[in-house]
Design a protein around this nucleic acid. Structure first.
Lengths: 108, 108
DNA sequence: TTGACTGGTAAGCGAATGCTTACCGATAAT
DNA sequence: ATTATCGGTAAGCATTCGCTTACCAGTCAA
């Protein structure tokens, strides 16, 4: 069993929904309880809970219980598979970056 | 209307399916017609066509007609939104992106 | 204890996904 | 001209997704 196998849900699937990406963005600014998060969305609190569950299953967040609150915490290192996959194409970006540099140099 | 609005499908959604990521991986090695791609998958050719359509709508590939073949071509620059979103969190672990960001900032 | 507030879960429903088979037009080969 | 090959599209179907409302247990405040 591999380390990543403990997560029921795929990271790519987890970040495919804009609301879930926004949740991660919000949590990146600091841990937050569910209601604080839910305030940013035009959906009911249960719906937010369900999205958080998907993020939790993907390992992208953890929950910490504080009294009756559950503070969610962002785990950026779990974005590793996405980063790794994207890194495969870095050479394309390098090429593009070089082109951009050339363009900028010409402009100057 | 923004440049990215011309694509019907979201890039994050497009890359959420493992088969579609693999198709991009295969195309990154070189343009290929549909049948050559389909040979790598345990699904029917129409299913492959449908996946390609999603990639096409997301702007991640283009098609080029050569006789009765259609060669698909990978467009890595369309992964920009993913890269940009991920770059927000790169400070957590990656040096390379940091350098690139610095360079870009300096150029600007 | 009684109540208010936390947030997870179940049930249900419409829409979207992901696949299949059947079919089609366009091009190439004989 | 006939036939084979390219690959897209339509229709159908089972499953999953994303949301809702209803309800639940646990915690804090009066």
């Amino acid at each position: 069993m591999v380390a990543t196998a403990k997560f029921a849900n795929d990271v790519f699937t987890a970040i495919s929904h804009p609301a879930r990406r926004q949740m991660l963005d919000l949590l990146a600014a600091g841990d937050q309880p569910v209601n604080a998060l839910a305030a940013h969305f035009a959906m009911t609190r249960p719906a937010v809970s369900q999205h958080l569950r998907i993020l939790l299953d993907a390992g992208l967040v953890t929950e910490e219980r504080h009294g009756r609150e559950r503070r969610y915490h962002f785990c950026p290192e779990q974005l590793g598979p996405v980063r790794d996959w994207l890194a495969t194409y870095e050479r394309f970006w390098d090429e593009r970056f070089k082109k951009l540099q050339k363009l900028l140099a010409k402009k100057k």
